[in-house]
């Protein structure tokens, strides 16, 4: 445990002076900012008339200017955007050792290879949770600023539960990204993989099988699916299976492959 904490400390030192957290936080902040804009447009009919395309889109989404709608957009943003932003985070944490050629300095140490990888997973988890909290915090701040109606404690708790359960599902899908960063020895393979999963999620969900495609499950869980078939236990099981397989594949490969470069 002590070794894991020391390895985690080493990972956290690597975050210092990193612009990647700021970049990912800004990218993620687009969701609450856009939801604020939606709310603002909905509440001012003059603005809605000027932004006819935006108001048409909102009418299509049946969005009203209240807390329910704000949390719905935040949660759906997490279901889709989370795959991308968390994938970016995992690619950076696991792939940078190859891009910076520092991987060779992590292999012959008293701290085991598995411990170093576990520390990376924890750092990735903490980072992603921090991003999710910043994101929802910004959303709440915007909601308070706009004085949205319909806020009560119990309701807020239910909304937050939906938001963080979607966050958790999205986070679980980070392990195959980590594996691909190690296997592909850099950022390119995992980022290409994240882009592909987003495309396939859209296509597979559109033909009605999204509930069995792990990368579509967080978005469907967030309620983005509309008329889609509901998620079932098997849907959540596929996400768990992908997470476990990704984790063990990354540990196995990291421990046993030859490091020639």
């Amino acid at each position: 445990m002590c070794n894991l904490l020391l390895a985690l400390r080493a990972e956290l030192i690597k975050f210092k002076h990193s612009k990647v957290f700021l970049i990912s936080a800004i990218a993620f902040a687009l969701v609450p900012v856009m939801s604020g804009v939606f709310m603002l447009v909905m509440r001012h009919s003059a603005a809605a008339a000027k932004a006819s395309l935006l108001s048409a889109k909102m009418e299509m989404m049946s969005v009203s200017a209240d807390w329910d709608a704000l949390f719905m957009i935040l949660t759906q943003g997490m279901g889709v955007g989370g795959i991308m932003v968390f994938g970016f985070t995992a690619s950076w944490i696991f792939g940078r050792e190859y891009s910076d050629s520092t991987v060779k300095d992590l292999l012959s140490l008293p701290t085991s290879r598995a411990t170093i990888l576990n520390a990376k997973y924890i750092a990735c988890f903490l980072w992603s949770i921090a991003l999710a909290i910043v994101n929802v915090g910004l959303g709440v701040a915007i909601g308070l600023l706009l004085q949205l109606p319909g806020f009560d404690g119990e309701h807020a708790f239910a909304c937050l539960r939906g938001y963080f359960s979607t966050t958790f599902l999205t986070l679980l899908l980070g392990t195959p990204v980590a594996f691909l960063a190690i296997w592909g020895k850099g950022y390119l393979s995992p980022l290409a993989f994240v882009a592909l999963t987003l495309v396939f999620s859209q296509i597979i969900a559109a033909v009605g099988y999204g509930q069995y495609f792990p990368w579509a499950v967080p978005a469907l869980h967030s309620g983005i699916g509309g008329e889609q078939p509901p998620l079932n236990n098997l849907s959540y099981l596929t996400v768990a299976a992908v997470a476990v397989a990704g984790y063990y594949a990354s540990i196995f490969y990291w421990k046993h492959t030859d490091y020639q470069k």
């Binding site: 002590c2 070794n3 020391l6 390895a7 400390r9 080493a10 030192i13 690597k14 210092k16 002076h17 990193s18 910076d100 050629s101 520092t102 060779k104 300095d105 992590l106 012959s108 140490l109 008293p110 701290t111 170093i116």
Partner: peptide, 28 residues
């Protein structure tokens, strides 16, 4: 054991002291 294999590489955005802190932790 101490080692230096081929080109020396370090975390580019970390200072000399911070780079050494990383390995100070990993070497326990």
């Amino acid at each position: 054991i101490g080692y230096l294999v081929e080109t020396p590489c370090a975390y580019p955005n970390l200072s000399v002291v911070e780079n050494l802190h990383v390995y100070h932790s990993l070497r326990q």
